[in-house]
Amino acid sequence: MRRRRPLPSHRLGLLLLVGSLLLLVREKPAQAGPWTRDRGHLFVSLAYSRIAADRLFGADFRIVPLGASYEQHALQAYAELGLVNRFLTMSFESQLFRYNALLNQGATYGLGDLRLGFWSGLVTAPLRLTAAFLIGVPSGDPAPFASGDDEAQLIARSLPTGDGEVDFEPRLSLGYSFGGVRRWPLQHYMVIEAGYWIRTQGRSRNPRGQFVTSDFADAFTYRAELGTKLPFRVLERFWIILRMSGVESFASDIAASFTCATGLGNGVSYNAYGFEIAARIVRGLGANFGLDSALRARCVAAGVNLKAGLTYEF
């Protein structure tokens, strides 16, 4: 059998370079983040998410078994509205409803925290670079109150629906879309984001039931996301998304507090991978389904976060 001669290394390199350039020049529209919205354009999403866990990432990042079962259900709204072409898109993110439960003990429910964001495009070609400023508003309850006995109060206090702090985050978001060419028919978009989360003071209850404020340590945040679309009929309606995201708090292990498994409080950190499928159903209507799970974390439930939602844009 005749073997094909391998390509000389310089020709292979040239082909790779040409291929890369072709990918670079072919930009396709992609979704969210660094792609600011034009004036009057809106994107809204309503998603349900659920975490169930009987383990948590402890204050020293090690997984600790819980003697209890924890569940969290949330209904989350997200919206982006273009106010000024390229230069100003406003985002709104809120847990409209958050339900925390310790099975056979107690549950709390109510409004969660919300976040407002202002996004401005710095660079639009050949890639997208957008600066954002996010403001966290403590609309959730950091220290729920129970009218029952002492134990009921401990349970309620352990299940906050918010972190009780105003916080700020400047963030840079880099986006790039490529593919959809003859040599590489798959379409992709890529997002890389980094932010500095300026945390202030959180509120909670001390063991006597009094409100206390405590300083929260700042944190570094990041997100890397790769979306892929297959160039086939029907399948072209789906984005397959892989994601790594994280929060790295500068709090020491000892300072991590008022957190337990709820992911709210000082010192919360995580590095999580995620998988999501986003589908376009008809016109601007879409749906998505995904999951996230932490590889390394502190003070969050060690469980898979399942989510499903509907989106609409025009």
């Binding site: 439960a101 310790l102 107690g106 959730g140 029952g148 006995d149 002492d150």
Partner: peptide, 19 residues
């Protein structure tokens, strides 16, 4: 935005009013 609390403990484990 006060959260509501639901006591999920069996009736036998509740000890009454706060103290």
């Amino acid at each position: 935005c006060e959260a509501r609390f639901v006591d999920l403990r069996p009736e036998s484990e509740r000890t009454g009013s706060p103290s």
